[in-house]
Design a protein around this nucleic acid. Structure first.
Lengths: 243, 243
DNA sequence: CGAACCGTTGATGGCATTCAAGGGTTGTGG
DNA sequence: CCACAACCCTTGAATGCCATCAACGGTTCG
């Protein structure tokens, strides 16, 4: 972990429209910047926080990606989220003052460290920030409901198709290609997240490829037939995350 | 829908320790009461709000119970939550200004209507209320993660056992018996919530009864062997909701 | 060069769904 | 008061989807 005291501030951050500053005036952003100065580098495979760690900060992803997961009593884990730049990690730790989940970098990544007590105080003074925090909480709840639908009702192929479309649209929102991207997570994480096994996911990648829906080579994915893929997803990319 | 302008205020509400007033001083509760005056009666089977309704209020359950659910593009629904007195409904509607899910009474119920704009303003002035709102959001996120684990990884019997223990502990917290209670929802809703079919749930009720874990007659349930039931749940009643 | 991890593919089996039928309860209207 | 419809719950039998077990090739890294 390293601190990079570069002149990267919210005002010129590439994901400011997707992050806490969204909807804030320049003056408010200036105030926000005073508590987002500290950055942290997390290398691929390293943890940003672990289950049980005391809650002190939220983390805003500047670059890279993370998975977050919960651990059951028997040690079994469930991946609950793949997080991309602009998204906040640690929101579920507020009520218990302890992180109930852990977050691990899927690639070399960088985050802003947000001391929550300071954020709380500032939000008390800046209604727009307050609203943005509510909005992020609310959005996350909405997304989780859509994932519940996916896990509760959908077949394996539908789940994977929905995930691919979801990731595609999230990349697109960040200015990257919607049709071609590199997955940052291994098959096992995808499988875990979707409530499947790695073998099933691998078979589905093969099948989608045979059906000319995608072209995939390892983690390199190209969507060839978005309409077809959407049909497999049943347009249950109502779970579109953010799009 | 009827208004009951009785002298039921937060200060003497039976679920105040589980609801918004938790952690507030008497003075703050007095302020809160001024925006929680309006009550609403919802009869069994009626909707409190529907998918797509504009967001204006949060609702705090005073008595009864609700299910909330999301509807997919193909009309398929997924029950996402069973809500008991003291819990808040509508939090997922903030960011989109529209209810992404609907809430339906499972029995004749009563709620407090909380105009969110007023709640927001008050929270700006009362830090303890602000914190309680964060806490409720955060708690909800934490619970959803636990449900994801249930749906993603667990067998049918584990899911049902975990739900029974969860409901039991939530009733207990509200001063009712933890070992004997009446489920307010039909088997189909339980099945939908757990990602199963009604037939499977019914079979499990029978099996649990044969194994002397519970005694059940329709929706009337008595837990005979909490230890045994917990073992089936794998102590994955880490999804304990609130216990 | 070997270990560790990752991804793929095949064969087999089990668990939950699906399809089907029947009984109990509630509520309504003749 | 009875008949009938609409639910709700239960149980049985058969199918099918996905997990499990197993083996193997590729890549990375020490």
């Amino acid at each position: 972990m390293t601190d990079t005291q570069r002149a990267v501030s919210c005002g010129n951050c590439s994901v400011r429209r997707l992050c806490l500053p969204a909807g804030l005036s320049q003056g408010d952003i200036d105030k926000l910047e005073q508590i987002t100065r500290k950055k942290k580098i997390v290398k691929s495979g390293e943890s940003l926080f672990r289950t049980g760690d005391p809650f002190a900060n939220l983390y805003a992803i500047r670059s890279g990606s993370f998975k977050s997961a919960v651990i059951a009593a028997d040690g079994d884990t469930q991946v609950t989220h793949f997080a991309l730049p602009g998204e906040l990690l640690g929101l579920d730790a507020y009520s218990g003052r302890v992180h109930p989940s852990y977050a691990e970098a899927l690639e070399d990544s960088s985050v802003c460290v947000l001391p929550f007590s300071q954020l709380e105080t500032l939000a008390q003074q800046v209604p727009a920030l307050q609203q943005q925090i509510y909005s992020i909480f609310s959005e996350e709840l909405k997304q989780e409901n859509d994932i519940l639908m996916l896990l509760g009702k959908r077949s394996a192929d539908t789940r994977l198709a929905a995930l691919l479309i979801n990731i595609s649209s999230r990349y697109a929102r960040r200015g990257y290609s919607a049709s071609r991207f590199v997955l940052s997570m291994p098959r096992t994480d995808i499988a875990n997240y979707l409530g499947l096994t790695a073998e099933t996911v691998s078979r589905l990648f093969s099948r989608f490829q045979k059906e000319k829906l995608i072209r995939a080579s390892g983690r390199d994915v190209e969507i060839l037939d978005l309409i077809g893929l959407s049909e497999v997803a049943g347009t249950h990319c109502g779970y579109e995350g953010e799009g």
